[in-house]
Amino acid sequence: MLRLLPGLLALVLAVYTLVDCVQTPDERVRGLPKVVWVFVILLFPYAGPAGWWFAGRPKAYALPGRPLPGPQDRRAPRGPDDDPDFLRNL
């Protein structure tokens, strides 16, 4: 039973990664085209999924109804006394 564990782990990891890759929109895939990622995931049992998770998967997903975070959204946090919108509503 213990001898089957690495093969079972590789299969589960490949299936999970393959589903994630197929569901990712084409324009969000990094590194290689999506079709190439599918072949890499299928041909290399451990390296393919690892490559997808570290180099091919998008960094952030948008929540439904909200745009993806961009560089303009990375402002330093401000306290309520520095926020003019907050002060205006007092």
Rank of each mutant, 00 (worst) to 15 (best):
G7K: 01
Y16Q: 13
G70S: 15
P6L: 02
G7W: 01
R57E: 09
A50D: 08
A60R: 09
G7C: 05
D81M: 08
L13E: 14
R88W: 07
L13C: 13
G31E: 02
Y61D: 15
G56Q: 01
R75I: 00
A47I: 11
P33D: 09
V35A: 15
L8M: 14
L43Y: 05
R57C: 13
W53S: 10
L68K: 02
L42T: 03
V40C: 02
L63P: 04
I41N: 07
P77K: 01
R28G: 08
T17Q: 13
F54V: 12
A62P: 04
Y16H: 11
D82H: 06
G79R: 10
P71C: 06
V36D: 05
P45M: 08
P80K: 02
P25W: 00
L5R: 10
L90C: 14
L18K: 04
V40F: 03
A60I: 09
L18E: 08
L9M: 09
E27A: 04
L43E: 07
R28H: 10
D85R: 11
P25Y: 00
P80G: 01
A14P: 06
A10Q: 07
L43Q: 07
P33S: 09
C21Y: 01
V19Q: 15
R74D: 13
Y46R: 12
F54P: 03
V38Y: 00
P84Q: 02
P64G: 10
W53C: 11
A50K: 04
L32M: 14
V22Q: 04
R88G: 12
G51Y: 03
A62T: 03
F44T: 12
L32C: 12
L18A: 06
L90D: 11
D20P: 07
R75Y: 00
L5N: 08
V15I: 11
A10N: 07
P49D: 03
L63W: 10
Y46W: 10
P49N: 02
D82K: 06
V22A: 04
M1Q: 14
V36G: 05
K59V: 05
R75P: 04
F39P: 07
F54Q: 12
Q23G: 09
Y61T: 12
P45F: 04
P45E: 05
V40N: 01
V29F: 03
K59Q: 10
V29Q: 03
P80R: 03
G79P: 08
D85P: 04
R28A: 13
F86S: 15
T17M: 13
P58V: 06
V12E: 06
A14G: 14
L42W: 00
